[in-house]
Write a protein that binds this DNA or RNA. Structure first.
Lengths: 223, 223
DNA sequence: GTCTATAGCTGGATAGAC
DNA sequence: GTCTATCCAGCTATAGAC
């Protein structure tokens, strides 16, 4: 299974192609990626790219997978804290995710929106997304277990609502104020507030309080 | 200022061009709009389009403006209810907005995301967005006045958080499950829950409760 | 107002030499 | 593994006849 020199060099080139493609997308838009332009910037002729990627879609797919792996990787450092303080870990993870998205707006758009006409990620590229969702659900369950969250906060709706909060803050910031620093962005700076709002809504019932039945209910009757 | 027959016919053609462009975008992606294809579908030759729009960007801009006007228009029916029950009006408006976005995914993407490389809306096209934001702020202020919301819910952060909720639900649904009915979508069906969560977080202080200082605060110290 | 014709360009992708 | 050469297609946009 050893990677010999040839293979190493090849992987380096693959990485360089993806990096260059990201540069092109940053300037021309996510949907504006061009194989020819990518090749030119690398000092290559366009046909040579096809030795590494069989099509433009393949490049998008590789970038999608890279982005997904990176967002999952961003959460890794906070897994350890999950057993001590799940809520703290969730907030830290949320802030790290939002910060990553602002630092990598092109990848974030590829992941959170669907800006490229013909492109659908392959199952292989999508797999990290599944793991990320499982990780989030596990974290929310840990918060329930620690008495920081009502059980409804970790069920299907709770998870969906939490991901909507993430997507909402990131989408608004990217669409309206893409180059603001995370701490100052009109939307990204509200990340802790959003997490608070979530935990407040799904606050666990306190036995000594008598209006607790109003909180953390699964789906309030509000039609 | 009368619109004679010639002008009327022209405006009809303009509308037809925009409708056809939307069809093309629905099939080819928002960034996949083609002047030539639009013309062909109308039984025209491509150059004739330039009698109505000087460039592709002009079509995007007209569509952006149309979309903005429509989303504002969707809220119109609920203005009357603002004085009676602001919270009810906000919820109804939110549901109408989400339903509109799902019924017009192409326009919604153009408004909520930035999927088209070179395109930035002109101030003229953007103007309805400003009105929409003012309307939202007025609605939130009405809720404060009616004792349904703490003052912090209508300040700058509250407005930004509310729009993030809207954008989050719509983004997640469009990206992950675009063709689900609003009532059944994993994310869109949580619209009432999201609004509840917002109002719960910014609940007005109740004088007889003694833990009220924990709710509705502007920006909780949670770093 | 609509057309033909066309300029001018860029793109994705392949064949086959080196 | 990289190249030259090339195919073929598509596009935006303009000039100028009808």
């Amino acid at each position: 299974m050893r990677e010999d020199r040839r293979q190493l060099r090849r992987n380096e080139t693959v990485r360089e192609i993806l990096d260059t493609a990201l540069e092109v997308m940053a300037e021309e838009g996510v949907a504006g990626l061009s194989m020819a332009e990518t090749a030119r910037r690398m000092g290559m002729r366009p046909p040579s790219l096809y030795q590494y990627f069989p099509s433009k879609t393949a490049i998008y797919d590789a970038l999608f997978e890279r982005g997904m792996r990176e967002t999952v990787g961003v959460l890794e450092p906070y897994r350890a804290e999950l057993s001590r303080d799940p809520r703290g870990a969730l907030l830290a993870g949320q802030q790290a995710t939002v910060a990553w998205a602002m630092a990598h707006p092109v990848l974030a758009q590829l992941l959170y929106w669907r800006p490229v006409p013909g492109f659908e990620p392959t199952p292989r590229a999508f797999e990290p997304a599944v793991r990320q969702l499982e990780l989030l659900r596990a974290a929310l369950r840990a918060a329930v277990h620690a008495g920081q969250l009502s059980p409804a906060g970790a069920d299907e709706d709770g998870v969906a609502l939490y991901t909507s909060l993430t997507a909402g803050v990131i989408s608004q910031q990217l669409a309206n104020e893409p180059s603001a620093p995370v701490q100052e962005g009109r939307f990204t700076r509200l990340t802790p507030t959003a997490v608070d709002m979530f935990f407040h809504f799904y606050a666990p019932e306190e036995s000594e309080s008598d209006d607790s039945d109003l909180r953390g209910r699964r789906t309030p009757a509000a039609d």
